[in-house]
Simulated scan of single mutants.
Amino acid sequence: MTQSLTPQITPEISSRKPSPDDFEKPAIPDLTNVTIDNSEPVDNLISEKQQRLLVSSLYSSFNVSEPFLATANVGLFYAANKPPLVPDIMLSLGVTLPEDWSEKKDQSYFTWNFGKSPEIVVEIVSNKVGNELGNELGTKLKDYSQARVGYYVVFDPFHYLGKPNLYIYQLKGINYQLISTNWLEEIGLGLTIWEGEFEGKSYQWLRWCDEQGQILLIGDEKVALEKQRADQEKQRADEEKQRADQERKRVEYLEEILRSQGINF
């Protein structure tokens, strides 16, 4: 019995490099019925002040060569078929704001428009709902990992979650891992608990810091620091002038004594 053999056809291999046009571009979601602002009030006064402190200090003192976006309570849309996350604080490096804000697609953080996920989000625990089985250390931990946010920070000023008041997670693969350092190497920023006064309220605030632990100052603090330096410089100059005047008077006194003794020079 003779078998019929099917000829083997070797596919032609092209040396041409693929171009962006060879790949199917993702469809841009229709945002017509998407709610980007649900008009919910802020949690409490401490949380509201804490958010402004973190955002304003970045714009005042974060020395980075690339543009960045820092926001408070802005929607983070990471998937077309999922509701947005609304972090208390969000920082994204290497992105710029659109010049025209008239369109809905430019009024929130849509990852497909900015081309990347944020580097870090911060959630501030303001009530007992934020527990390990609930929000900040539960569902939000999972949600932000799915959004591919590099660092997830939970600040618990009232210790609703336990003894620690600061939790820092870093994305490792597809899951977050709790880390022991407060220095975020990939971002060039650190976090520290700072006890001091902000807008007339003395408290233990969460602050950005550099690698040496020096806090990033807000505008008012920078002005106050410059004034302090100027006052110290003026005081130093006044002291130098006072010493010079005293020396001049001492020399004049000695000259007068010598003249009284008939010694001329």
Score class of each variant (00 low, 15 high):
K82F: 13
K82V: 15
K82I: 15
P84L: 06
P84D: 07
P84R: 05
P84V: 09
P84M: 07
P84S: 11
L85A: 12
L85G: 10
V86K: 11
V86C: 12
P87E: 07
D88C: 07
D88S: 06
D88P: 02
I89V: 15
I89A: 04
I89M: 06
I89Q: 04
M90D: 05
M90L: 15
L91I: 09
L91K: 02
L91F: 05
S92G: 09
L93D: 02
L93E: 02
V95Q: 07
T96L: 14
L97S: 09
L97R: 10
L97G: 05
P98W: 08
E99K: 13
E99R: 14
E99C: 09
D100C: 10
W101M: 14
W101R: 15
W101Y: 13
E103G: 05
E103A: 13
E103N: 09
K104D: 09
K105G: 10
K105T: 13
D106F: 12
D106W: 11
Q107F: 06
Q107C: 12
Y109C: 03
T111D: 11
T111Y: 12
T111G: 03
N113Y: 15
G115W: 11
G115C: 07
K116H: 14
S117N: 14
S117Q: 09
S117P: 08
E119W: 04
E119I: 02
E119M: 06
E119V: 03
E119R: 07
E119G: 05
I120N: 00
I120H: 02
I120D: 00
V121A: 06
V121R: 01
E123A: 04
V125E: 08
V125I: 11
V125K: 03
V125P: 03
S126Q: 09
K128E: 15
K128T: 13
V129R: 14
G130I: 01
G130C: 05
G130Q: 01
N131V: 02
N131W: 06
E132W: 07
L133F: 15
L133A: 14
L133N: 14
L133S: 12
G134K: 10
G134M: 08
N135E: 12
N135T: 10
T139Q: 12
T139I: 13
L141P: 00
L141V: 00
K142N: 08
K142T: 08
K142V: 08
D143T: 14
D143H: 14
Y144P: 06
Y144F: 10
Y144I: 03
Q146I: 12
A147W: 09
A147M: 10
R148Q: 15
R148P: 05
V149S: 04
V149K: 02
V149N: 01
V149A: 04
V149Q: 04
V149G: 01
G150K: 12
G150T: 14
Y151L: 05
Y151T: 03
Y152M: 03
V153R: 00
V153H: 01
V153F: 01
V154Y: 00
F155A: 02
F155T: 00
D156Y: 04
P157N: 09
P157Q: 08
F158S: 12
F158C: 10
H159G: 10
H159D: 15
H159P: 10
Y160S: 09
Y160I: 05
L161S: 07
L161V: 04
G162F: 06
G162L: 05
K163L: 13
K163C: 10
P164T: 04
N165R: 12
N165K: 10
N165V: 05
L166G: 01
L166A: 03
L166Y: 03
Y167M: 00
Y169D: 00
